[in-house]
Nucleic acid binder design. Structure first.
Lengths: 242, 242
DNA sequence: AAGTTCGTTCCGTGACACGGAACAACGCCG
DNA sequence: CGGCGTTGTTCCGTGTCACGGAACGAACTT
């Protein structure tokens, strides 16, 4: 019963924002009356909202989600550095953590000219095709890289790396440079530079700057992203992590 | 059963970040075996996390909460203006919406010198003792003000307004000025100036700048916060709201 | 060693979740 | 206008699984 409620909520994963009852049924495999009753219960709890015949995620979930300590503390500690990074570069800035073989974005700061990116707060993307993901991957130890490379590499654009050997060398380069690069592998026309964030000696997050290809300049961005990552790492020295 | 799960998750409302099983029992009124089984189920779903004998909210909830469209869209639209406002003032900036008789904070931007404030993203405070709350209250029509004034006014500090007449005149001043003020009513030593955000003719949010009392200057802050609120209102013209 | 407090497991009972079936409300097409 | 597919809603008998008292074990206190 909790599991079925979870199935329903998990339907809302992508950017589709509202669903009809019949859509929930076919995506969860639940019979109609069951989904109907469950959805009604979820609405009563404020976890779903209903307008007409469409269901969407409810405000109560936002409030609960914002209280998750692991995420909240990291975000709170990181925000000033993300601000610095944004002001220094005036480009779109990301903070992400690893969750299994994906990167989950915890914060995203941008100005009025937001890029069209697949990254969304709370959303996940493959580690192998984002800047933040590569930074996490390069500094998380060889076992993780092996595991990623054991599966076929997913891709988001035609330029996403799908060749294991190429990824392997990209990670090695990142390790020596302390920075990870990504070129139109997550979104066409957008490049990215990322740096790992450490706490107690292990990577706990990574932050990145995403910028239109034509405006990309490693010389300009590298020091800024490196500075921000080091500053955050220093603050986290004894703090969150695992 | 869903309700009981909701009870458990609602325990985590305040800033206490982790609870033991027995604490969950006494706060929910659930018998021990029931809470135990439910907590285990929630852990399995990723909605709770368990370390040793302590439970905390799980990462899955963060991801779900970040997808709530009503909040996400507003935050996304507002972020560039919050950035502008922060850069113009270099003070702590808030974005909040109304939820019943409370304000819920949707975003909060600050630099390295974060103020010690009771406001937290996803957290709620009484409308009557915060800048954002007063702005929402002053421009939401008289029925809402009447309803707030029908209850005894809650307070967060000794200087929180508890006299209905005082609040009434404060709201009237806010209405003519287009700005709401707050002086150490939410946190000692912190003052605040706030402006309403409109979409389709009704208030949908408010944003504010909070600043240490000694640094407060209406002349400096008022134009900045007004500009940001108007800019956001313009972007939202046909967008979210309700 | 005796006493608390807490987490965990067991298990018989009964409430309530379950979902097939039937119904109702639209929208579509001929 | 009438037949048809689709979708949301309600009913209700069946069976399951959530329920929680009781008992157990571990850890800590006095």
């Amino acid at each position: 019963m909790l599991d079925k409620a979870g199935l329903i909520l998990d339907c809302f994963a992508p950017e589709r924002e509202s669903y009809r009852l019949s859509e929930l049924c076919e995506r969860t495999g639940l019979p109609k009356p069951t989904a109907h009753r469950l959805a009604a219960d979820l609405v009563r709890l404020g976890w779903l909202e209903r307008t007409g015949h469409r269901y969407r995620l409810g405000a109560k979930l936002f409030e609960l989600g914002a209280r998750v300590p692991r995420r909240r503390d990291l975000r709170e500690a990181a925000l000033p550095f993300l601000q610095d990074l944004f002001e220094a570069t005036r480009e779109t800035v990301h903070l992400g953590v690893r969750e299994g073989l994906d990167v989950v974005y915890v914060e995203r700061v941008h100005g009025h000219d937001a890029l069209r990116l697949p990254s969304r707060i709370g959303g996940s993307l493959p580690l192998s095709c984002t800047g933040v993901g590569k930074a996490l991957l390069a500094f998380s130890g060889p076992e993780l890289a092996d595991e990623v490379l054991a599966h076929p590499l997913r891709s988001l654009t035609p330029r996403s790396i799908t060749d294991p050997a190429l990824l392997r060398t990209a990670l090695e380069k990142a390790q020596v440079a302390g920075l990870a690069y990504e070129e139109e592998e997550a979104a066409p026309g957008v490049s990215c530079i990322a740096a790992p964030v450490f706490a107690r000696g292990t990577v706990v997050a990574a932050l990145s700057v995403a910028v239109p290809r034509e405006r990309f300049s490693a010389a300009r961005l590298a020091p800024a992203v490196r500075t921000a990552a080091l500053g955050l790492s220093r603050v986290l020295r004894g703090g969150p992590g695992g």
